[in-house]
Design a protein around this nucleic acid. Structure first.
Ligand SMILES: [Zn+2]
Length: 268
DNA sequence: AGTGCCGGGCG
DNA sequence: CGCCCGGCACT
């Protein structure tokens, strides 16, 4: 079903006006090779309340003709969404890490729980450093792969502590605004819930880039790799037969689970 | 420590 | 085939 949704997004995106990152010259290596896509049109519903209202009903035709994009380029920019973001087997010396998407924050941590706590405390201003989470942090970080070989090369000039935890980044907690109702992000029909609490200082996912009035430009890669389109399932939902029925009622498991194979009853 | 499950073994 | 389990990745 994820793939179906992704396909829906893709097809709708492919008909949307495209904005290319002007700074991404063809010679720029992979990480900066980003496709900027204008997906969301936003408007302030009220100048005084500061409420955000996301509305994709704006089907206005782009004033400038679409840039001549080759199909090849399109495919290159879209095929990544269909590969497993966290492959079970990983190449040697490639480590998955978690990068904060907040604007002007390049924090990278090695664990998802760590980046969640970082976003919760530093950016969302949830002062209580408990492990409770309402899930909003998930929208603001992404998984990246880091080559550990090239990383250890430049490790000499860093502090002896872990480079992921060490850092002098007193990033100011941005002011928060309260959005009364549950807001939606609508992209050509596909809707995604966003938390009721949005920060005024938007994460990098929503950074503006030469926006036309009332429009927001997001990095398509960050958008896809964030959990905005496919929000994380409610906490602790990888429940399969074993966890559901328990060891005592093993006879109620599906045959695959009884044989320690991939569960056939509860599929993702 | 607990869970999901691939690969491989046994009859 | 059905059935079981060692061991590993991930949490
Ligand atoms: Zn099962």
């Amino acid at each position: 079903d994820k793939e179906v949704m992704a396909a829906t997004v893709l097809s709708s995106l492919s008909t949307s006006p495209l904005v290319l990152n002007p700074s991404s010259a063809p010679t720029v290596p992979e990480p900066a090779n980003r496709v900027w896509k204008e997906v969301l049109s936003a408007s302030y519903s009220s100048s005084t309340s500061g409420n955000w209202s996301w509305d994709a009903s704006d089907q206005s035709v782009p004033s400038t003709p679409s840039p001549p994009l080759s199909n090849d380029n399109n495919k290159k920019s879209t095929h990544f969404m269909f590969e497993d973001p966290i492959p079970r087997k990983r190449k040697n010396s490639m480590k998955v890490m978690f990068k904060c998407l907040w604007k002007n924050c390049e924090k990278v941590l090695s664990t998802s729980s760590g980046i969640q706590r970082h976003i919760r405390t530093v950016h969302l201003g949830r002062n209580c450093d408990s492990d409770y989470s309402d899930g909003e942090e998930d929208f603001y970080y992404t998984e990246i792969e880091v080559n550990m070989d090239s990383l250890t090369e430049g490790l000499s000039n860093l502090t002896p502590t872990s480079p992921t935890t060490a850092g002098p980044p007193p990033v100011f907690p941005p002011p928060l605004i309260n959005v009364p109702h549950s807001e939606h992000i609508s992209m050509n029909g596909l809707q995604s819930h966003v938390p009721t609490l949005l920060s005024q200082s938007a994460p990098r996912l929503f950074q503006r880039l030469e926006p036309r009035p009332g429009h927001v430009v997001v990095c398509m890669h960050d958008l896809m790799m964030s959990h905005l389109l496919f929000p994380r399932k409610p906490r602790g939902e990888a429940k399969k037969c074993r966890k559901v029925y328990g060891m005592e009622k093993r006879d109620m498991w599906c045959t695959a689970c009884r044989w320690k194979k991939a569960c056939q009853r509860f599929t993702d």
